[in-house]
């Protein structure tokens, strides 16, 4: 019993991509192929029906959390179009990122998108500076989205610069060498995944049973270098009825990107 499944035919929803025109020189991961693949995954009719049947309207309001919001484009998309994507508007959303700059940018991206889609949007609560979901109460997340630093790299940058340094400031139009260095470091955190590109993703999978609610589902982006079949094996090996299924796959330049959902 493996997990790959091909989405049934059907026309994906065509919903506008949130504007990120307020991002000028801030050191955040810009909306890219991987971000757009996540938007397309949520727009598939198969996912729309999966989510609306998993979170029926008569159940309590779901909590949606994105880890590593970066520009905020993915969270803004799902928050702004909650009604067509999830069949309900009574969702609350939180954004988590290790970068303060990313969090302030995300606040703007989501707020703007929700104002522009006032009739269909969920309610965005806040962005929080956090390492993965360490700030959250256990087992409260219903829909978790993670576009991790997935590129296999020989070095995996440590978070100690952010943990132990001076409190982060919002970076824009950097002029000093110190700011340039910080920008370069923050950008390395957005993509460098260490061994197999999996060092950060592995830490999340280790904790997943303490993060998701019983009805919770993780949408995770992987690239071919992450060796998805091994990740599937690992998730199935966690027992307790964990499943991992492919939602969508796409070639993007030299990368093959895929979105997976992991749930019990």
């Amino acid at each position: 019993m493996t997990s790959a499944s091909i989405p049934p035919p059907g026309t994906p929803l065509k919903l506008p991509t949130p504007s990120t025109s307020h991002i000028t020189s801030q050191p955040v991961y810009p909306p890219s192929e991987d971000s757009y693949l996540l938007l397309d995954a949520f727009s598939l009719p198969s996912e729309v029906s999966f989510i609306s049947s998993r979170f029926p309207r008569e159940t309590p309001a779901p909590l949606l959390v994105e880890i590593g919001t970066g520009s905020g484009v993915v969270s803004a998309f799902v928050a702004a179009h909650a009604k067509p994507l999830f069949g309900r508007r009574d969702l609350i959303t939180l954004g988590l990122d290790v970068s303060f700059t990313a969090n302030t940018v995300t606040n703007t991206t989501i707020t703007k998108a929700c104002v522009e889609n006032a009739a269909t949007c969920a309610t965005f609560l806040n962005s929080v500076t956090s390492d993965l979901t360490s700030c959250l109460r256990p087992s409260c997340v219903d829909i978790l989205i993670f576009n991790p630093p997935y590129v296999p790299t020989s070095e995996h940058p440590s978070l100690s610069t952010l943990r132990d340094g001076t409190p982060q400031r919002g970076l824009v139009n950097s002029k000093s060498q110190e700011d340039y260095d910080m920008e370069e470091y923050l950008l390395s955190l957005t993509y460098a995944g260490g061994e197999n590109g999996m060092e950060t993703t592995d830490r999340l999978l280790d904790q997943l049973h303490n993060v998701l609610s019983d009805r919770g589902v993780l949408y995770l982006l992987l690239c071919a270098g992450n060796k998805p079949p091994e990740v599937v094996e690992r998730v199935l090996g966690m027992g307790r009825g964990w499943k991992m299924e492919e939602v969508i796959e796409r070639r993007a330049g030299y990368e093959i990107l895929s979105i997976w959902k992991i749930y019990r």
Binding site: N107, V128, D131, C135, L162, D164, P167
Partner: peptide, 9 residues
Amino acid sequence: TVANFLLPS
């Protein structure tokens, strides 16, 4: 408005 939950190492 952004809370910082990054702990020191």
